[in-house]
C-alpha cells in the first residue's frame, strides 16, 4: 500500500482500471440491499479473516465473490448464513440480523456434501419441504427427473457428481432471497458444470440475488453481473463485470490473476 499526498491509501497491486466506480449500482440504492455489511470484522484468535468489509449487494443480480484461498470468502458466507457471529461490525440480510428469520430466506450450498448418505433422495425432499416454506417440491422433482436421478436411491449409492447435482437442485428449488453458493463447480466434470451454470441462470429472478464464491473464474464469468474481489479479508474490487471488461480490455480471469499476483 502506498500513501498518496492526500494521505489516502491505494493498494499497489490493484491496477487503476479495476477501481471502477460502481455506477450501475448507485441507481439501485433505493431498493433495499439483500446483503449488507458494515465494517464487518471476523477474527479467529489473532487472525482477521475479515478485516472490515463494507458491502451492499442489490437484488436481482448474479454476483461473483472472488478471491484466493484464505481471502475470507468462506468466512463471509458463514457469517451470512448465521453459522458464526461477527467479531465486530454488522451484517444484515434484507435488513435482518442473522437468525431464524434470515435463515428462512437464505439458501446455502456448501462446498462439500452436507447430507446424510443413508437418506434416500425423496426423504431429503420431504425434509426440505418440512423445514422450508419456500421449497418447491415440483421444481425439485422436475429437475431430478430431467437428470434421470432415481428418487428412491440412497445418496451413498450415487456418484459424487450426481450427489452434488442433487444438493444443487435442493438449494435452487427454494424460492429464497439470497442464494449462497460455495464453489458450486469445483471438482465437477465440464458437462456437469454446464448444467450447474444453466440451473443457476434459470433460477435467477429479480427478487433474489445469487452470490457465487469461487476461484474458478473463467468458468463462471460469463454469467456474472457483478464481481467482488476479496483479498486478505478486505474488498479490493466491487464493480459490474462488463464495466471492468470495457475499462481494462481484459477478461475477469486475467484481471484476477493480475490483482492476486503472488
Amino acid at each position: 500500500m502506498e500513501q498518496t499526498q492526500n494521505g489516502e491509501f491505494t493498494p499497489q497491486t490493484v491496477p487503476e482500471t479495476a477501481m471502477a466506480p460502481v455506477s450501475d449500482n448507485r441507481a439501485e440504492e433505493s431498493t433495499a440491499a439483500i446483503l449488507s455489511c458494515k465494517h464487518l470484522v471476523k477474527q479467529y484468535g489473532g487472525n482477521p479473516a475479515l478485516a472490515g468489509v463494507d458491502l451492499d449487494l442489490p437484488s436481482g443480480k448474479i454476483i461473483g465473490l472472488l478471491g484466493p484461498n484464505g481471502s475470507g470468502k468462506t468466512t463471509l458466507l458463514k457469517l451470512a448464513c448465521g453459522l458464526i457471529p461477527p467479531t465486530s461490525g454488522e451484517i444484515l440480510i434484507q435488513g435482518l440480523r442473522p437468525g431464524i428469520e434470515s435463515k428462512k430466506i437464505v439458501s446455502f450450498l456448501p462446498e462439500k456434501t452436507y447430507l446424510n448418505g443413508w437418506m434416500r433422495v425423496n426423504d431429503i425432499l420431504a425434509m426440505f419441504k418440512d423445514f422450508y416454506a419456500d421449497f418447491s417440491l415440483e421444481t425439485a422433482k422436475e429437475m431430478l427427473a430431467n437428470l434421470q436421478i432415481d428418487e428412491r436411491a440412497r445418496l451413498k449409492t450415487l456418484s459424487k457428481g450426481t450427489q452434488e447435482k442433487v444438493q444443487l437442485i435442493l438449494v435452487m428449488s427454494r424460492r429464497a432471497k439470497l442464494y449462497l453458493l460455495d464453489e458450486p463447480i469445483g471438482g465437477v466434470d465440464p458437462a456437469a458444470r454446464d448444467y450447474i451454470l444453466r440451473t443457476i441462470i434459470k433460477n435467477y429472478n429479480e427478487q433474489s440475488t445469487i452470490l457465487i464464491s469461487t476461484h474458478l473464474i473463467s468458468e463462471v464469468e460469463q454469467i456474472l453481473d457483478q464481481a467482488v474481489f476479496l483479498n486478505h479479508g478486505k474488498i479490493v474490487v466491487n464493480a459490474p463485470v462488463d464495466v471492468l471488461r470495457e475499462q481494462s480490455g481484459k477478461s475477469l480471469d486475467a484481471m484476477f490473476r493480475e490483482v492476486f499476483k503472488c
Binding site: 448465521g82 431464524i100 428469520e101 437464505v106 452436507y114 447430507l115 423445514f131
Partner: peptide
C-alpha cells in the same frame, strides 16, 4: 459436515 445443514435450517 451435516452441521452445515442443521445450523442453516431455520431453527
Amino acid at each position: 459436515q451435516e452441521g452445515y445443514l442443521m445450523f442453516t435450517l431455520p431453527v
